[in-house]
Design a protein around this nucleic acid. Structure first.
Lengths: 165, 165
DNA sequence: AAAAATTCGTTAATATATTATCAAATTTCC
DNA sequence: GGAAATTTGATAATATATTAACGAATTTTT
C-alpha cells in the first residue's frame, strides 16, 4: 500500500505522492542540512533562530525589527521574543529610531561579534565538508533554482488581489 | 555596508553572505512555496503540520508514531500533541499494536479522508499554477538536487561517531 | 488642524519545536 | 530466568510560530 491508501475517484487525478510534495521536499532537504549544523549550534549555545538573526545583523548592520523579520523569514511576534532573549544574554541592543519613533533599531554587541567569529569559523568548516561531498556545481545549481523559484512564486502571488511586502 | 559589517581578520576567510547560507536559501524557497499554500490551508481550517501528518497517513495508511514522526520531519513530542488535536477533531484514531504494546498505531478517520479529498483538489490546482510558471523541468531538477543533497549529507553524517535513526 | 487610515512593535492565545526526563514495554546479555 | 540496556510514547520547560488584537506614532485625507 505505497500509493493512495484509499481509492481515487475515477474522474479526478489523485493527490501526488507525499514524497513529491514540494514543501515536504524542501523541508527534508533543509532538515538534512540542519542536522549537520545543529550540533555546532548547540555547542555554541545558540538557537537556530538566534543565529539567523545574528547573521542578518552581522551582514547588514543595524536595522529595524520589520526589515529584520522579513529578511530572516521570522514573523514580528516571534522576532519580538528572539530579540528580547538576545538582549538578555547581552548579544543585542535596541534603540528607537529618531526620525520615526515607531521603529526599533536593533544591533549586535561586541560580545555577539566575538561569538559570531568563533561560531562562524566552525560553521565555515562544516560548509567545506558539505561542498566537498555534494559538489560545488550541485550547490550552485541548487542556489540558482531556489532563487528562480522565489522569483516565479513571487510573480504568481502578485497577480491576485493581495498586499505585497 | 552590504557585506561584512565588521572587519574580517586578514588570515581567515570571512563568513559567507547571509544570502548564500544554505539553510537560509532552503528556508526562503520553502517560505515562498508555503505562502502559496497557507491561504488554502487556512480556508480548510487545518495547520501546516496537521496536513503534513494527514498526507503521510493517507499515503501509506496506518503507521506508528515513530515512523510517522520520521517521515514528517516532526519530533515525537510535537507529534504527540498534533495527533492528540487531530483526534479531538475527529480526524485521527490511535490504538496500541498488539505485537508490541509500546507502539501506538495511528490512522485516519473517514471524515479525514473526506477533508483530504476536498483540500487535495484545491492543492493540486495550485500545484498546476506553480508548475506552469516555474516549469516542469525546473521542478524536476529541484527534486533531484534535493534528493541528492539528502543522500550526500546522510553519508557525511554517517561517518562520524553518531547514533543514526 | 483634526479625523481617518496606516504602520510598527508588542501582547495574548494557541500550536508547534526542542531538549531533558520518565514510565512502561521490550530486547539483550549473562 | 533475570538484571541491564534499549525502545516507545509521553510530559515538562522553554523557545518559536501563527493569528488576532491593541496602543502608539505617523501619514493621508478632509
Amino acid at each position: 500500500m505505497n500509493r493512495a491508501a484509499h481509492a481515487a475517484q475515477p474522474g479526478r487525478p489523485p493527490l501526488r505522492d507525499f514524497a513529491h510534495s514540494l514543501p515536504m521536499a524542501l523541508l527534508r532537504g533543509r532538515e538534512a542540512v540542519m542536522e549537520c549544523f545543529r550540533p555546532l549550534l548547540a555547542e555554541s549555545g545558540i538557537t537556530e533562530q538566534q543565529w539567523r538573526v545574528m547573521r542578518a545583523l552581522g551582514d547588514s548592520g543595524e536595522q529595524d525589527m520589520a526589515k529584520l523579520a522579513r529578511r530572516c523569514c521570522i514573523l514580528p511576534p516571534s522576532m519580538s521574543g528572539i530579540i528580547r532573549r538576545l538582549e538578555q544574554r547581552g548579544h543585542a541592543r535596541r534603540r528607537p529610531a529618531r526620525d520615526d519613533q515607531r521603529c526599533t533599531l536593533v544591533s549586535l554587541t561586541p560580545a555577539a561579534h566575538r561569538l559570531m567569529d568563533e561560531h562562524g569559523r566552525v560553521s565555515e568548516q562544516k560548509y567545506k565538508e558539505i561542498e566537498m561531498i555534494f559538489g560545488r556545481a550541485n550547490l550552485d545549481k541548487l542556489y540558482r533554482l531556489l532563487a528562480e523559484l522565489e522569483v516565479s512564486l513571487g510573480a504568481l502571488r502578485r497577480r491576485r488581489p493581495s498586499r505585497r511586502r
